[in-house]
Design a protein around this nucleic acid. Structure first.
Lengths: 110, 110
DNA sequence: TTTTATTATCGTAAAATTACGATTAAAAGT
DNA sequence: ACTTTTAATCGTAATTTTACGATAATAAAA
């Protein structure tokens, strides 16, 4: 027990959940905001902007990378992070589809 | 250690993260899909549609409720679940804003 | 009133997450 | 070569999540 029953769900649900989970921490939202702010992506100064230690930020970056939402290329001494355009679009679309499915309830109970 | 440093982030980031976290499990996505499928909201048969035990489903429902995304009203013997329109819209908007911020990178590194 | 159906909660266990300091690795600068 | 800078990884600890069976709690049905 304790581990998610991944195999039992549809690929679509697993994929959306994966992206949503990556977005499910304020530190990672903050990191993404920093990356979204700039058109260039030399960003070795993410740590300074967050109230967390270097190792913790690195861990959050790793999770965003593992979810596919960001990429990190070594650029000399620093690492160059940026949003992964494809994954970003996929996440946006998948979530948009789900959110768009809502139609107001016609029964009196809610 | 182990607990999220909630106070140190902006309310916006905490709020989006809260919604995203609630969406961050395939079972909860599946539950939301079931609720989104119908215009009425008498839904006591969520358990049958999922590969999880009754207590586990109940726990997932609780988390969706605590995040604000769904409501549950007692309707006789059963409980009537449905999407919370306001929270749903807020979550959609907050995520949409973040996703919309992306502009392709103009440097060569990614 | 007793039974049945439905959902929540409790207790428990395994696993994952969050966080930090310390260490390592790699590249650049001296 | 040595030092410095930058980021990842390791080791560790607390907390949270995921999951289940068993047990309440509540309301309808018999």
């Amino acid at each position: 027990m304790g581990a998610t029953k991944t195999e039992e769900f549809t690929l679509a649900d697993i994929t959306v959940a994966k992206y949503a989970k990556a977005l499910g921490h304020p530190a990672r939202i903050a990191i993404l905001r920093i990356l979204l702010e700039r058109t260039s992506c030399i960003c070795g100064d993410i740590v300074e902007e967050l109230p967390l230690s270097q190792s913790t930020v690195s861990q959050h970056l790793k999770e965003l990378k593992e979810a596919g939402l960001i990429k990190g290329d070594i650029e000399g001494k620093k690492v160059c992070y940026c949003i992964d355009a494809q994954a970003w679009q996929e996440a946006q679309q998948l979530l948009q589809i789900i959110f768009g499915k809502y139609k107001p309830c016609d029964t009196s109970c809610c």
